[in-house]
């Protein structure tokens, strides 16, 4: 099991979301950065949808009360084991009694901590994600607090193989990192500062010519009013060219809607299920991890692509993940 010594700013248990119930208004929740979440799980031999900890901006201090196979993925929040910096994107075997802590955000703002076997929590409505507002799911329906103790489920045979191999090599050390890591091709999106790819939104044509152009020309800053539900962006004001009344309809992860005051809002993991503000654009699935790692003060730019290109990029990414999954399953045979 693991013990929370300090909780950090916002540390929650998440999986890939609570799907199938949005028709009843139940929000999807789930990891903000699903790419990092999935990879963190794969690295310790878990299925991709298992629970992992989402760690935000200021990381927790966690003690391992038994030898534990872990991995860290996503934002680089300067993780350390017993004070010594450790790497992201690779399995790490941590000795019993060791402590994991974090420092400044070097890149991104959300790190994912997976453990072999994943965390033992009560599944609610088919998901292990924490739905903070309703107080359900994850660990007792709330962010972690000091003193919380989380148990692990049983390891898969893949987890056991990785665990065993690293156990053979750890010797007297506090921890040992695997010699291999995730192909930098997959994680390049976190480092390259490229405009975020979007598809036109359902009400794109409701905006003035000037606003449509400005949306793709100007920079927008992530404001401090940004959380798991959505990011408010500051930049040029976007105006409608029509006074048409919008009828509420579905929104989804990455919807960019514009309320009357003209500053766009990007809807994220804890978004509501429906919305009544015009949607100017929708972030391409393949770039959701990039925006999930954006923090207040970061500047963003948007670039328009077609639905077809967006789907192609998504399928390319899935192929890379498939290769990674295959590689891990073969590596420790």
């Amino acid at each position: 099991m693991i013990k929370i010594i300090k909780p950090g700013l916002l540390t929650t248990v998440q999986d890939l979301g609570r799907y199938g119930l949005q028709k009843y208004g139940v929000i999807a929740s789930g990891a903000m950065d699903q790419l990092a979440h999935r990879i963190a799980n794969l690295l310790v031999g878990n299925e991709e949808n298992k629970s992992a900890l989402e760690i935000t901006l200021i990381g927790p201090v966690i003690e391992f009360t038994e030898n534990t196979l872990i991995s860290l993925a996503g934002g680089n929040l300067s993780p350390k084991i017993n004070g010594v910096p450790v790497d992201l994107w690779r399995p790490i075997l941590v000795r019993k009694g060791s402590k994991l802590s974090f420092g400044p955000c070097k890149t991104g703002c959300r790190a994912y901590l997976a453990v072999a076997g994943s965390y033992q929590v009560t599944t609610v409505m088919g998901s292990d994600s924490t739905y903070i507002r309703a107080g359900i799911g994850g660990f007792l329906g709330r962010p972690l607090k000091a003193g919380d103790v989380l148990n692990m489920e049983r390891m898969t045979s893949c987890s056991k193989r990785i665990f065993q191999q690293l156990s053979n090599e750890i010797g007297e050390r506090d921890y040992i990192e695997a010699t291999w890591k995730v192909d930098p091709m997959i994680t390049a999106c976190y480092i390259d500062k490229k405009p975020i790819r979007v598809i036109v939104g359902r009400q794109y044509h409701w905006f003035t010519e000037e606003s449509k152009q400005a949306f793709f020309r100007e920079e927008f800053m992530v404001s401090s009013q940004s959380d798991r539900m959505g990011y408010r962006l500051n930049g040029c004001h976007l105006a409608l060219s029509t006074d048409k009344e919008m009828v509420s309809e579905a929104v989804s992860f990455g919807t960019i809607q514009v309320p009357a005051e003209g500053n766009p809002i990007v809807l994220m993991a804890d978004r509501q299920t429906t919305g009544g503000y015009p949607k100017i654009a929708q972030i391409s699935s393949v770039d959701l991890p990039v925006i999930a790692q954006a923090k207040p003060g970061d500047k963003l730019q948007f670039r328009l692509i077609s639905v077809e290109e967006s789907q192609l990029k998504y399928l390319e990414r899935e192929e890379q993940i498939k290769q990674l999954r295959l590689g891990i399953s073969l590596l420790h045979r």
């Binding site: 799907y19 199938g20 119930l21 949005q22 028709k23 009828v247 509420s248 309809e249 579905a250 989804s252 299920t273 429906t274 699935s285 789907q311 998504y314 399928l315 899935e318």
Partner: peptide, 17 residues
């Protein structure tokens, strides 16, 4: 994956892969 009904629309979310 699921669908979201609203006043005048039904949105179907699907697994692209």
């Amino acid at each position: 994956i699921e669908y979201i009904p609203a006043f005048t629309t039904v949105t179907v979310l699907y697994d692209m892969g």
